[in-house]
Structure formats: C-alpha cells, structure tokens
C-alpha cells in the first residue's frame, strides 16, 4: 500500500522518543557508575560519563560496600550465576522427562500426574511464603545453593510446553524407531532430544532470566552474606537510598546485575521471543 511520504518519519520519531524514555533510567545508571558518589549526591549529576568507572567497578566486584559485610559483587555474581543456571537447567531437565512420561507412555494415573503438575500454576511462591520457608529450613537448606534453586525448579509451564511439542511428533516416527530397534530411552536421546533443541534453547533463555531475577525467594532463604544473590545484594547496599548511600558503587553493581540477562535477551533474541510467546506463563 502506498503511504503519503510526509508521515514516513512519524513512526521513527515515536519509536525514538519511546526508546529514549525506556532507555533513560539505564543510561543514567551507567553514567552514575562512572562518577564518584559526591559528584552524584551534591549536585545535579552530570549526564555525561565521568572517568571513575574502572575504580567503581573494581571496588564493587572485590569488596562491595560497608553494608554487604565485605562480600564483593564478584561473589554475588557467582552465586546468582550458579542459581540461575541450576534453575534453568533443572527446570528443563525435570520438565522434559516428565512431559516425555506423560506423552509417550500409557500408565495408571497418567492424567492425575499431569493435573498434579499443571495445577502448580496456581501456587506461586508468593502465596505460600512462610510454610515453604519452613520446609526448606526443616531440610537444612537455608543458605545453600540447593535451597535457593530446588524449590523453584518444578515448573508446570515448561512441562506444558514440552508436552505440547511432543504431541506434534508423528506416531509413525515412534513406530519407525520401534522397528529400528530403539527403546524409549534411546528414542528420547536420539530423536526427541535433538528435535527439542529449539524449544530447549527458548526455554533456557526465559528460565535463566527468571532464575537470575529471583528476589522474594532468595530474600527468605539467605541470611549469610556469602550466599547473597546480586539482586538482593543491591537492596542491601542501597540502605535507605538517601545521601548516605554509596551511589557510585550501587550503580556499578546495578549495571553488573542487569548486564547478563539483558545481554542474553539481545544476543539470543530469536530464542527469547520464541520462549516468551510460547510459554506465556
């Protein structure tokens, strides 16, 4: 369709304004991470980057600040990475095998198990905070990676996604495998797993972000500063968010915290979009 030339620039203008607003807080944060705290606190701060970036990041990574009990952001990043990977890999692993069981076998209680998993959609951690904490505490998992990750790796969403995909694998493919002599585990390894690659990639992106960004759960199950995840760490560093806050360090830490998930979204955009559209909770 032909459009009048005069309005060709309108979409670009609107998008650029939108992007400017969306990106503004991130830009200011990045700039602040290159200034000193006094430059931020006593002034209108500059909107152009300063020269103090390296020292802020080094300090953040190695020692954090006074409110993090000397635990550096490096340690927090490591904790967060471990937890995010454990959640993403764990969720995918247990979901894909349980979906495989529900789809490729016929056994008593099949639908009951399916519903048991499906209904967990209705039980987000936010509605069972205290008793879930009690269970984790009872198991001695407070301040452990297992305590941070395991309670979050049961996922109806991922199971549903895999089930949906498995149902599209033609019956004849299963029969061909049977004639070829492949048993269920062989079929899983040689056919189902390779065919699920794109779904796994898409889920991985979404779940890694999910795991990285956890807040309420780590807040509950970690007391030890050594076990802090970075998102919680920032909250601790922030204090009251007033003039006493070491803003330059907080801002450097914030950049470090949002960089990995944002990088994944940008670099793996195709998988991210697929994952988001197909899981949609």
């Amino acid at each position: 369709m032909r459009r009048a030339r005069t309005i060709d620039w309108v979409p670009h203008a609107v998008l650029l304004i939108g992007i400017a607003i969306i990106a503004f807080p991130v830009y200011v944060t990045v700039v602040a991470s290159t200034l000193t705290t006094p430059e931020i606190v006593y002034g209108p701060m500059s909107l152009l980057p300063g020269p103090h970036g390296p020292e802020n990041y080094v300090q953040a990574l190695s020692e954090g600040n006074a409110k993090t009990s000397g635990v550096g952001v490096g340690r927090m990043l490591l904790n967060t990475l471990v937890v995010a990977l454990a959640i993403a890999v764990g969720k995918i692993a247990i979901s894909i095998i349980s979906a495989y069981a529900v789809v490729f076998f016929n056994f008593p209680g099949r639908m009951a198990f399916f519903w048991l998993i499906f209904l967990t959609l209705m039980l987000p951690v936010e509605v069972r905070i205290v008793p879930t904490y009690a269970v984790v505490a009872g198991l001695g998992l407070v301040d452990t990676y297992a305590g941070l990750a395991v309670p979050l790796i049961a996922s109806a969403t991922a199971t549903l996604l895999f089930r949906q995909f498995f149902l599209t694998i033609p019956d004849e493919m299963v029969e061909a495998a049977k004639v070829d002599g492949a048993g269920p585990m062989r079929f899983f390894k040689d056919v189902v797993l390779p065919l699920s690659r794109t779904n796994i990639a898409a889920l991985f992106v979404i779940l890694f972000i999910y795991g990285w960004n956890q807040y309420l759960w780590p807040l509950l199950v970690t007391n030890d500063a050594e076990m802090t995840t970075i998102v919680i760490g920032i909250r601790r560093m922030l204090g009251n968010g007033d003039a006493q806050t070491e803003w330059s360090i907080v801002m450097a830490t914030t950049v470090l915290a949002l960089l990995p998930p944002v990088a994944i979204v940008i670099l793996m955009q195709r998988w991210f979009v697929k994952g988001l559209v197909e899981t949609e909770k």
């Binding site: 807040y215 915290a257 944002v262 979204v265």
Partner: peptide, 18 residues
Amino acid sequence: LLSPYAVAPAIAGVLWLF
C-alpha cells in the same frame, strides 16, 4: 524495547528510585 523484560523487578525499582 524488549530489553527491560530482562531486568529484575527490584533492579527496575532501583533504576527509577535513583
């Protein structure tokens, strides 16, 4: 435009708080 999805809610809070 898709990037903010990747930012943790608490971090989003800190960005705007700042």
